[in-house]
Simulated assay, not measured.
Amino acid sequence: MVDAASPQGPAFESPVVRSYPASADGDLTLADASAATKWLVRASPDGPTAERMGTAFGSSNRTPGGALVLGSRPGEWIIVGSPGEVAAAVADLDGLDAEEFMTALDWTHSRAMFRVTGAEAARMLEKVCGIDWGDHMTPDGAVLSASVALTTCDLARNDIDDTRSYLIFCDRSFGQYLFDALIDAGNEFGITVHAG
């Protein structure tokens, strides 16, 4: 039984522990979004869970309740949002076909998540990741896995108000390192940092 509404245990602490200047002259921003609720769901890529998720591998979609569902791998989805949004999305998995093996795991405390937003976001990411960030390869809604500053990450393009924006997930233990590497990559574009 999936119970996303139960307490999450200890209070969340950001993996980003250093403080940073809060202003710059560009429109590029880097924000620590690690406190967002994150769940990992794994099941058959063509079973009832996959149908309920409604999100194909390499793409993303919003649930009616507002959670963001990322098709991170075949048969694997990352669900991100507020505690209530994610709880509603995960609760929908109860009662599916008992023949299918499905797991749902609260990832909130184990994964760091950062958001890079701005017109120069793709150029910044090109400095630390060998992916083609052009619209033809990574349009809004695209989900992929790649090495970012030599760290294994899941990434999703998730534009905000027609402004290019990316979510970057990594293991919590690499959070501070990756945050610092992203700041370094964004400095030439006048990055504004929002940590913790």
Rank of each mutant, 00 (worst) to 15 (best):
I168C: 10
G47Y: 01
I79H: 05
A67M: 02
S14V: 06
G65W: 08
Q8G: 15
E13I: 13
A149V: 07
G47V: 06
C153M: 08
R62G: 06
V148P: 03
A50L: 05
A112E: 04
P74K: 02
G134S: 12
E76I: 04
D161I: 07
E188R: 10
D154R: 15
A146V: 10
H136E: 14
Y177M: 12
G65T: 12
D106P: 01
A11I: 13
Q8V: 12
W77D: 00
A104C: 04
D135G: 10
R62H: 13
A89C: 00
Y20G: 02
I78C: 09
H136A: 15
R123A: 13
C153R: 06
W133C: 08
G118T: 02
V2C: 13
P21V: 11
A56L: 10
G141R: 06
A35P: 04
R123K: 14
L150M: 15
Q8C: 13
K38I: 05
N61E: 11
A4G: 14
A87P: 02
A11N: 12
R157V: 02
T163G: 05
I78D: 07
I78W: 12
N61T: 13
S72E: 08
A31I: 08
W107L: 15
P21F: 04
S72A: 12
A185N: 02
A87T: 00
E188C: 07
S72Y: 01
T63G: 03
E100K: 01
M113F: 03
T163P: 10
D132V: 06
D171V: 12
S6A: 15
P83V: 00
A88T: 10
G9P: 04
P7V: 10
E13S: 15
A98V: 04
V80A: 05
T37D: 10
S23V: 11
A22H: 12
V16G: 07
V148C: 08
D27F: 10
D135I: 11
A5R: 15
M124S: 08
A36F: 13
T151V: 14
N158R: 13
R115C: 06
Y166A: 05
L150E: 15
L182R: 02
Y166E: 05
T103F: 00
E126M: 11
A4S: 07
V2L: 15
T49I: 10
A43L: 03
V80N: 02
F179P: 07
S82P: 00
A35W: 11
M113Y: 01
C129I: 06
V16K: 05
R123V: 10
N61Y: 05
S60V: 00
E13N: 14
R42A: 12
V116F: 06
H109A: 11
S165M: 02
R42S: 11
T117Y: 06
A91M: 02
S34F: 01
Q176V: 09
V16P: 07
L125K: 01
A89L: 01
S165F: 03
P21Y: 07
D171R: 14
I79Q: 01
M1A: 14
T49N: 07
V16T: 03
R123C: 09
L40M: 11
M53V: 06
T163D: 12
F179A: 05
D180A: 11
Y20N: 05
V17H: 14
L167D: 13
L125Y: 04
V193H: 05
L70C: 08
P74I: 01
